[in-house]
Design a protein around this nucleic acid. Sequence first.
RNA 1: GGUCUACUAGCUCAACCGGAUAGAGCAACUGCCUUCUAAGCAGUAGGUUCCAGGUUCGAGUCCUGGGUGGAUCACCA
Length: 594
Amino acid sequence: MLDIQLRNAISEAFQSLFDHSLPADDITLQPTRKEFAGNYTFVVFPFLKITKGKPEDSGQKIGEWIKANTEWIKDFNVVKGFLNFELKDVHWVNRLHEISQDENYGSLPANGEKVMVEFSSPNTNKPLHLGHLRNNFLGDATARILAANGYEVMKVNLVNDRGIHICKSMLAYQQFGNNETPESAGLKGDHLIGKYYVRFDQEYKKEINELVESGTQPEAAKKEAPSILAAQAMLQKWESGDPETVALWEKMNDWVYAGFDQTYDTMGIRFDKMYKESDTYLLGKDIVEEGLGKAVFFKKENESVWVDLTEEKLDEKLVLRGDGTAVYMTQDMGTCEMKHKDFPFNKSVFVVGNEQDYHFKVLFAIMKKLGRSYAEGLYHLSYGMVDLPSGKMKSREGTVVDADDLLQEMFDTAEKHTRELGKIEGMDEKEAGALYHMLGLGALKYFLLKVDPKKRMLFNPKESIEFQGHTGPFIQYTHARISAILRRANTLEVSSVFDTNNVTDLSVREIDLIYKMTEFTTALKEAAKDYSPAVVAQYVYDLAKEYNGFYQEVPIFNEENKDKLSFRIALSLATARLIRKSMYLLGIDVPERM
RNA sequence: GGUCUACUAGCUCAACCGGAUAGAGCAACUGCCUUCUAAGCAGUAGGUUCCAGGUUCGAGUCCUGGGUGGAUCACCA
């Protein structure tokens, strides 16, 4: 890497000029701002105590030393305390040569560490919605980014398939279902179940209203309504293994899973392992015992078990009910332990919305107190909610954006745009269909991934469907464009191998483009460190934009530039490859033509 | 009320753990399709980075106080 060479040179300059040992690792370089000449900038302000001089003089001295003692500085300049280095063309040419010749450029070697990424985690009582999409795309992209950083990655999905909410849809189906099936209803399984979940809520509300009208207090009515009592009874039956209840539960679950599978398939998302809460909800009780033994937990009068986290400013938290049944925290402690047994990870990432920040703080603090070796590696990838222009999504008010509907809308819009632009001539129906899918999904994924995961974001349907500007399709388009050039180069038998000695006089555009390419690895590492696909999204957009500028500058197949032809083809080839790699990290496919 | 979190152009978002004149996209306006794909390119306009103090060579970024929005504080999951 060039910047490492430069950092080493600065380190040597400090040794030689100021007799001071400054490790290259402590030196940071930044891209030179466009208004100034240069590629890399070294800020000298922090080192004035060492140089014992004015910022300008110190910069000048360092610059002169490096120019004199290395071969690859074309020039340097000092503005205030900013030392800007301009590198000779030949070094950019060499960089491109490396990048374009190395198929695996930017890949990082295996680091021997294992990381588990848990995401999606749907409820089996309703279809996936917009919030799940952000979760799924984020989890999938994060897993890809970690894998590209050398981790062995395991993607898991913990399905919430039991509990009172599941019984609600079961009950409504029993009462009003008339043996309806997904086939007979013409609905995906998850949507069919969702329908009955809504149905339950309608009945329940009706009953509450009737009770209130007949003089019951609203709070009491909520607890006394026949529907909710029936649902609670059903949950007990389920927990005691009543065959009829379990059979219904299994039948309805099969429908839901079939529906989910279809949606995951459409999104291009797969898991290495599925965990079901019905298998894990009893776990964690031995950990409670262990915690009591270690005096990490304590009992209150009514036998309920608590953990005191006031030192961590997290207050006291219940870990087991007085009647000995498990709560969410009990379960999660158990699941944590089981996951680690299944796959002895160094890191475990939980992709869960930020409304559960407190829960995970507590969970991680407990695991630390219990002395779990893996506790340090637990990470809550806490993402912000997705808001709609109309406000928050509320299932009761019908303002939920359904995942399947949204995906279909994206595909339809992609088709409409593509047809309007007349881009499908020469494509058969299958190819065109695949393209609509690629573009629609790419637009949606990019839209949701380009925002910092931690931040709450606004989902404006109109903008998400946009195919121009800072969007997935813009990047896909750039790739298709480059592909066209590479096809032409192929027919003209122009090689992408060039003589590094014969290429000179690079344009600013060309240097900027190569510079951008060298930042791929940096972006990849940073994305893994921050668990933020948004870093990659921003990177690939910048790269594509830079290429488009270069593309516009001068025709690549131009007689006057014949000596540069191979160089330019190599530039295109390398850009296309890096776009493909980056988009792969986001889980977005990229077309050869569009 | 306690805790956490956000606030940047009309709108949606950036700003590489403190660096130069805060950047993109959308929307608005001006140019560019007879040359490799115009889903593109070039340009104009748009800012008291919520407010007030502080820290220092230097603050959107760090500290203190305040304002506004959101989340969370269940023997729910």
